[in-house]
Design a protein around this nucleic acid. Sequence first.
DNA 1: TCAGCCTAAATTGCATACGATTTGCCGGAA
DNA 2: TTCCGGCAAATCGTATGCAATTTAGGCTGA
Lengths: 214, 214
Amino acid sequence: MSDRTPSADDAYHLIREQILSGHRAGGDWLREGELAESIGVSRTPVREALRRLTAEGLVHYERNRGVQVQDWSEHDLDEIFSLRAVLEPWGCRLAAVAGIVDVDVLDDLATQMDKVAPGGRPTDVDKLTDLNNLFHRTILEGAQNSRLTGVISSVVQVPLVWRTFTRYTPEALQRSLAHHHELVAALTAQDPVWAESVMQSHVRAAWHTLRTPD
Amino acid sequence: MSDRTPSADDAYHLIREQILSGHRAGGDWLREGELAESIGVSRTPVREALRRLTAEGLVHYERNRGVQVQDWSEHDLDEIFSLRAVLEPWGCRLAAVAGIVDVDVLDDLATQMDKVAPGGRPTDVDKLTDLNNLFHRTILEGAQNSRLTGVISSVVQVPLVWRTFTRYTPEALQRSLAHHHELVAALTAQDPVWAESVMQSHVRAAWHTLRTPD
DNA sequence: TCAGCCTAAATTGCATACGATTTGCCGGAA
DNA sequence: TTCCGGCAAATCGTATGCAATTTAGGCTGA
């Protein structure tokens, strides 16, 4: 009961992590046998993990052929961000109206992000990513619609989007960080229109930032 | 190669059908052994089906305890319809702009629904349900955003919503059928504002219809 | 009577084995 | 050389068996 193996949805988390981090590239085949061996379990739990990832859209499944990591085009990015640009501002407005978001937590997250990326130059992208995802999720939870939260997170789980900040210029990142503080202010003021429009700017700015570089 | 068993994502479709049709009520436990025997396969493919259903939110999974059919409250209905009321009108607007929806197909579907429910009294609810789902899906596909389509269908797959028409009064159903024809007209005219607002009326009317009776 | 433990049945979690399908390679014929 | 058939290797799909966990019931003792 001490080193209890939570068991093999470890497999799920491990594989998922490898995909989101970009360690497994789009198009790579994921072989059940290989994964099972590397994780140290049998194929059964690996298959289970792969089916979960299939349902979430992170991998692509073909009967009798296996699964490969989904790969992502500019078109996918547009789909994702046009959807986000509708849903996140709406959720942010709902959160402002409901007024149950803990703005102190939010403010703390925004400040931590400032510290991790002084001058728009991140020192720890993983940390920044975690903080950012938590920030957005916290706001959405304030909208009191669990399906909204679920839908957005299912759509955002794409390497390119997940690791958004690896592609930001210092200027873009600083603007993004400023948006966070403005969101805190709008939510503190419980002004739904303000909150919605800042979030809309925030998402659309991110969209363009990811589209143009490279 | 003639009677090739497509195999046991049969299991998936069978179980899913039983849930959506209300044959398995919310809260019912789904035992792997029982399902396997009734379907005529081993537990392995049944487990796979159950995991898919878990990912889709149709059933609730607890480790070492099994899965039970998700049960649904009025609050779930509100979550679903408030989300639909944002997404479907938006998708409808996009479809009107894109102008690639085959309005003849749509018109045909709307007409078929009239015939299946003369005077707002359905003769075959399953047929009506199928036609309605296909109608909505066809419009959404015209929005050219596959994630939008996926997100909405994942949210709509709830017995209460899926079998919407079993709870309609003749008047409500007739209004719904009229909306369909108006949607065809708006999409034919390629008027995004018209299309969006009709769809918004359509969804919100459905919401209230499902909320009030009983 | 009732709380608590302890055992047995039911059920799930995982590993393994084997059949089925697909893929890649090799040789032969045009 | 190129195309095509066929065989072997790789890989997936499913069945089965056993270990681990949970649940239910009865028994004991206060």
